[in-house]
Every structure is written in structure tokens, then in C-alpha cells.
Nucleic acid binder design. Structure first.
Lengths: 239, 239
DNA sequence: CAGGGAATGTTAATAGTGTCAACATCGGGC
DNA sequence: GCCCGATGTTGACACTATTAACATTCCCTG
């Protein structure tokens, strides 16, 4: 109790001592209410996730960082699982952005069949780039999560997919469709191709992060990934 | 303390009450020492892992099942991480056996190039069969594990690979080498092919277990997997 | 422009976990 | 025969999640 977490009052006072800009809603005001606790907790939990992965997303630790009592989080999350889920969705969003960025870097350029092929590769590169740049977040983005489980259990037909995970999947779908449109892939091969492609990059990322490939240099990883993309696309373009 | 875990004495007495055959070393003897506690703990932890995955491998729960005090485990394991690692190796062994079984079911038959190709498929089927039959164990077999991390960090050159994970990998390597020997795969494609194949099945398993494919029927899963194998092998056999 | 209810935060307490230190008991080798 | 090491137990500490009860503040209604 003596060296307990900083109370809200202590936090609010710390805000005014010039240590940094006020993060509360109104400038410098020592507020009992935080004002944006939900987001603050997600940010703190994300930082925890960055180094340490899913098991580092600890509710009390996040609350401690924000300078709030542990149970305050329960006013904004049903429990630790929901906090973890929020971080997970944030991670999926970042992953999607990484893929989009890699795809956009060559969009419009080379509009032909080779361009479509190169776009698939670019998406894979963007995926792996994020996994390497943010291993902790990546691990959270794909960690087992009871909220997603429940969601999939209950709703058999997910009409509107809010989650960013499906958006990144959609990007891949479009890229593969383009492959078909440009005659680089037959309709038959197209069936289930998203899964094959996704499985490939996901499996590669896993092996890079905590598998047998975890001590390869960046160049070696790139080389291995490109070879994998080669055979993947070779399989796609085979009638 | 009242409803504490069963003491060793209680366990030993339970052994003699006809509930089952004596698991201790000598028949019926109420022994203070367990006699085979390490294995018993691994078995208990494996049962926990079967339903619940890595996060269910709880040291105290395993000790409770064996009927032993929580700290007794520390005479046989450095800590929970080492217990988890033991279960992980057991899981990898089972996975290897599943792959070997699937491969052996058609070994020697059809020795030609088609047989080599079919063997690669069989290994993939054996892999996925295990993942579906033992999802919890599978998840443990590939969970992040600080022991493996340390091992990879320290020893840069792993001369002798004790782990079963490398054995299953070796099976795949042989199958791919056979593909080359029978002229179904060029040397160029061979480079890094293990990783591509491994990534594919691992990614598929992940999506089946806790990904977007978790509610497919067995038939649908098989169909998706076979299509993935098709394009994978198409990629391998492309010059 | 009150005042009261809802939102938000705090303390206290329970239950479960990993881990260490100190103590108890068995069993095999001198 | 006995003693020392291997093995198991108790007790304790530091974490964690979570709930219940209490406190404060915001803001909306009368």
C-alpha cells in the first residue's frame, strides 16, 4: 500500500509539473476523471505488447502506466481479454496499413500482368515487413482471442466484417482477382488461393519470429521470402 | 489449508483403495516419494495442454492432478517454463509420428515420381491431421518458448539437434530431395523449399484452429488443404 | 441554477498463479 | 548402522484477474 500505484490525484499533479504536455482533456487541470482512459489504456497496453507480445498485455500494468487504479479499467473493458482484443485489432490495422503501403508503392505503375504479379509480391513483403518491424504487435494481432472465438461461434454468416483482419484479407483477394483478370491465373487455381497465400506469409513470419529461422540476417530472410514468393506465384500461374 | 491439495500421504492411500492400478514404483506401497514424479507431471501437464493449449499448462494444476504439493515440481523442473517445454517436445514428437504414419501408409508403393509427389502430400495431410486431432497439443508444440529461444540464441551452430521438431523437418527434407531425384523439381526450386512447404501447412493449421477457417467442416477443410497442396506442388514442379 | 442520477474512479478483498526459503522424510551408499 | 543427498512439504511473497462497496465528478433535467 505504501508504494502503491500513483493515485489519480498524483497523476493529475504530475501533469502540471512540466514533465510533459497535459494528456488530459483540459490543460493542466487536475482531474479526478481521466477523460480518455479507454484510449490511454489501449495505448499503454500496445506499448506493453510491443515488447513482450500477448502475454505482456497485463491489465494492471497498463493501468499502472496510465497512472490509474487497476480496477478503473473495468469501466471501459469487460476484462483483460477485451483489452487484449483491442490491442489485437490495432495490430491488425497496422498490418493492413503496412500491406497497403507496400502495395501502393507500385500501384498504377506497370498496370499489366507483370504489375499484378508484382503487387501480390508487394503485399507479401508488406506483411513480412510489419511482422519484422513490430514482432510483439504482430504476435498479438494473431494471438488466440476468446472474443474472436465467440464472434465466430455465434455468427455463422458474418455479413459486415468490422475487423481489420478481413480488410487485409480483402486486399489480398483483390490482388489475386487481378491476377486472374490479367490471365496469369486460371479460375480453377483461384479457388482458395487467398488461403494458400495467407498461409505462406503467415508461416514465414512465424518461422522468422519464433521458429527455426529466428537468427537469420535481414538479407537472408529477404532471400528466403522471395524464393517462397517465387514458388507460390509459380504455383498460381500454373494452369 | 482445509481443502488443500491432496497430500502425498492421501495420494498414496488413494492408490490402495482399488480406484485403479498403482502408478507408483512398487505396488500399493504408500510412499512419501512419488518415484516417477517428473513423468507424472509431464503427463498431467499434457492433459492440461490437450484442452486449453499453452496457457493451460499451469504448474500448480499439474501438481494438483498428480496429488503432490506445488513446489515438488521444482525438484524436477527449473520452473513452469521448463515443464511447458517438456510438453512442447512431446507434442512435436506426436506431430512427427503423425507425419511418419501418413507417409508410411504409402511408402514403397508407387516408387516413381508420382509416388514422391504423393509422399509430400501425405506428409502435409499427416501434419494437418495432427493439428486437427490434437489442437491443444499442436498449439503447445509451436508456442513461443523461452527455452528454445535461449537455445537458439546461445548455440549458433546446432550440430546435433535433439529436438523432434528438427526430425519432422528432416522427414520433409527427404521427401523434397526425392522430388528432385525423380526429376519433379529443379535444383533451383529446391532451395528453401522446406520453408515454403512448412509455412504452408503451418499457416493452414493456424487458420483452421484459431483463424477465419475455424468453423469449416472436415470435408471443407480437406478440400481447402488439397487445393493448397495442388498449387504448392505446382510451384515446386515448375522449372 | 440547483440537485440528483449516471459515469467514472478508488479502496478492499478473494482467488489463483509462479517462485523461493526452510523444514521433513525417505533411501541408498559409506 | 547410519548419515547425507534426493525428494516432497509447508509457509511466505509478489504478482495477476476480478468483484463488491464506496467516492467523486459530470451533466442533464426540473
Amino acid at each position: 500500500m505504501a508504494d502503491m500505484e500513483a493515485t489519480a490525484r498524483a497523476r493529475a499533479e504530475a501533469m502540471t509539473d512540466g514533465s510533459g504536455p497535459d494528456k488530459g482533456k483540459r490543460g493542466g487541470k487536475r482531474t479526478y476523471h481521466h477523460g480518455d482512459l479507454r484510449n490511454a489504456l489501449i495505448v499503454a497496453a500496445t506499448d506493453l505488447a510491443r515488447d513482450g507480445g500477448p502475454e505482456a498485455v497485463v491489465l494492471r500494468a497498463a493501468a499502472r502506466r496510465v497512472g490509474v487504479s487497476p480496477t478503473a479499467a473495468y469501466r471501459h473493458f469487460a476484462g483483460q481479454a477485451e483489452l487484449l482484443h483491442a490491442v489485437k485489432e490495432l495490430g491488425q490495422q497496422r498490418l493492413t496499413e503496412s500491406m497497403e503501403a507496400a502495395g501502393a508503392s507500385l500501384s498504377a505503375r506497370e498496370p499489366g500482368p507483370d504489375g499484378a504479379e508484382e503487387r501480390v509480391r508487394a503485399l507479401g513483403r508488406g506483411y513480412l515487413a510489419f511482422a519484422r518491424a513490430e514482432p510483439g504487435l504482430y504476435r498479438v494481432a494473431f494471438c488466440r482471442d476468446e472474443f474472436s472465438m465467440e464472434k465466430l461461434d455465434g455468427v455463422i454468416d458474418p455479413g459486415e466484417e468490422d475487423s481489420w483482419g478481413f480488410r487485409s484479407f480483402g486486399i489480398l483477394v483483390q490482388a489475386l482477382d487481378a491476377l486472374v483478370e490479367h490471365g496469369r491465373m486460371t479460375e480453377r487455381r483461384r479457388a482458395g488461393a487467398e488461403l494458400t497465400a495467407w498461409a505462406t506469409v503467415h508461416g514465414l513470419a512465424t518461422m522468422f519470429l519464433d521458429g527455426p529461422l529466428s537468427q537469420l540476417t535481414s538479407e537472408e530472410i529477404d532471400a528466403v521470402a522471395e524464393r517462397a514468393f517465387d514458388t507460390l506465384i509459380a504455383g498460381f500461374t500454373t494452369p
